[in-house]
Amino acid sequence: MKRALVLALLAVPVLGLGAMAAEVANPMQPSALWEDMRLAVIGVDEEPPVDPAIFDLDAPPRADNPALVPVRITQPAGAPAIRSLALVVDGNPAPVAAEFTFGEALMPLDFEVRVRVDTYSDLRAIATLADGRKVMAGRFVKASGGCAAPAGKSMDEVRATMGEMRYRTADEDGRRIGTLMIRHPNFSGLQRDQLTLLTIPAEFIQTLEVKQGETPLFTMEAGISISEDPVFRFAHAPGDGPVTVHAEDTDGRIWDQSF
């Protein structure tokens, strides 16, 4: 009897570690939402293969803040180049968070962005390779309410700082790491003004283009799911000339900045 009790107690931490390991891995789960939207999003009805030898996506199993969920997309050395990528949050009101194109200078890819997650959902990236093949990676993320989360600043501060940009660089393993920060509320159309309680119309950065000199680094066509005050972190081959940023939002505002 005592031996059985000891064995049972010893099994508890092992089971706990197993559950923790499963949570850390947090692979994608079967998604009826994705089944319904796949053809519209990627243009093919066939499920793209998941292949970590080509690229992987990392996101927290349980998000601390559903309006600021970090997503990192990486490739191992020698992996085939990714030309474009669709970032999808299955359970969001507008599931396609953004569509990116990447220049050769970003290969192999190491790219980070923050998104809103509205409900427990698969968060997936569908990459198109240079030869036209599509490959997928993703994680299941436990988060809710990200698309309707209140803005972090007052409307006066939002208007005063909108379009401001900062850029910093660091060198790591022979590559340059750029971090681009843009002030913009990226209103989703589902948030309420905390003073008037009226719904704030959607207003977000729709187009972003980043270059170094004449060399394209990346472009983005975005929807409502990119976070407030978006931050982009990306590794690239060192190049010549300033880093230039061109951004446009849904209200027709344009910002250009050179670093």
Rank of each mutant, 00 (worst) to 15 (best):
residue 193 D to C: 06
residue 26 N to K: 07
residue 168 R to V: 07
residue 252 G to D: 11
residue 213 G to T: 05
residue 110 D to H: 15
residue 191 Q to V: 04
residue 106 L to W: 08
residue 120 Y to D: 15
residue 7 L to T: 03
residue 11 A to C: 06
residue 85 L to Y: 12
residue 204 F to P: 01
residue 104 E to L: 10
residue 153 K to F: 09
residue 103 G to P: 05
residue 4 A to N: 10
residue 232 F to D: 06
residue 247 A to S: 08
residue 116 R to P: 12
residue 4 A to H: 11
residue 85 L to S: 12
residue 92 N to D: 12
residue 53 A to S: 15
residue 108 P to W: 11
residue 83 R to M: 07
residue 180 L to H: 03
residue 245 V to H: 03
residue 45 D to C: 05
residue 56 D to R: 14
residue 223 G to A: 08
residue 259 F to P: 09
residue 143 A to W: 00
residue 80 P to K: 07
residue 144 S to W: 00
residue 35 E to Y: 07
residue 234 F to Y: 04
residue 196 T to K: 02
residue 209 E to V: 11
residue 252 G to W: 11
residue 180 L to F: 04
residue 11 A to N: 03
residue 90 D to P: 03
residue 5 L to H: 10
residue 187 F to W: 15
residue 188 S to G: 13
residue 65 N to F: 12
residue 74 T to L: 03
residue 111 F to C: 11
residue 253 R to T: 08
residue 63 A to T: 13
residue 196 T to L: 06
residue 226 I to W: 06
residue 255 W to N: 10
residue 208 L to K: 03
residue 44 V to G: 07
residue 229 D to Q: 14
residue 157 E to S: 13
residue 250 T to E: 09
residue 22 A to W: 06
residue 218 F to D: 01
residue 39 L to Y: 12
residue 44 V to S: 15
residue 184 H to V: 14
residue 119 T to M: 09
residue 100 F to P: 02
residue 20 M to E: 09
residue 43 G to C: 10
residue 200 I to E: 01
residue 56 D to T: 15
residue 204 F to K: 01
residue 134 K to V: 14
residue 156 D to Q: 13
residue 79 A to Y: 05
residue 218 F to A: 04
residue 34 W to T: 07
residue 121 S to A: 05
residue 245 V to M: 03
residue 237 A to H: 12
residue 133 R to D: 13
residue 104 E to R: 14
residue 92 N to E: 04
residue 188 S to C: 13
residue 206 Q to M: 04
residue 160 A to C: 08
residue 51 D to A: 11
residue 140 F to H: 00
residue 139 R to T: 00
residue 203 E to A: 03
residue 191 Q to H: 05
residue 233 R to H: 00
residue 259 F to E: 11
residue 188 S to H: 14
residue 6 V to F: 09
residue 176 R to M: 14
residue 229 D to I: 10
residue 118 D to W: 10
residue 84 S to C: 11
residue 25 A to P: 02
residue 78 G to H: 07
residue 42 I to S: 06
residue 160 A to K: 14
residue 68 L to H: 09
residue 86 A to M: 14
residue 90 D to R: 00
residue 58 D to P: 00
residue 252 G to P: 12
residue 50 V to N: 01
residue 60 P to G: 05
residue 73 I to Q: 00
residue 26 N to Q: 13
residue 113 V to Y: 13
residue 21 A to M: 10
residue 177 I to T: 13
residue 62 R to K: 11
residue 116 R to S: 14
residue 8 A to R: 01
residue 100 F to W: 02
residue 156 D to N: 08
residue 76 P to E: 09
residue 157 E to Q: 14
residue 31 S to H: 10
residue 16 G to N: 02
residue 6 V to E: 04
residue 229 D to N: 15
residue 75 Q to L: 06
residue 152 G to C: 03
residue 30 P to Y: 04
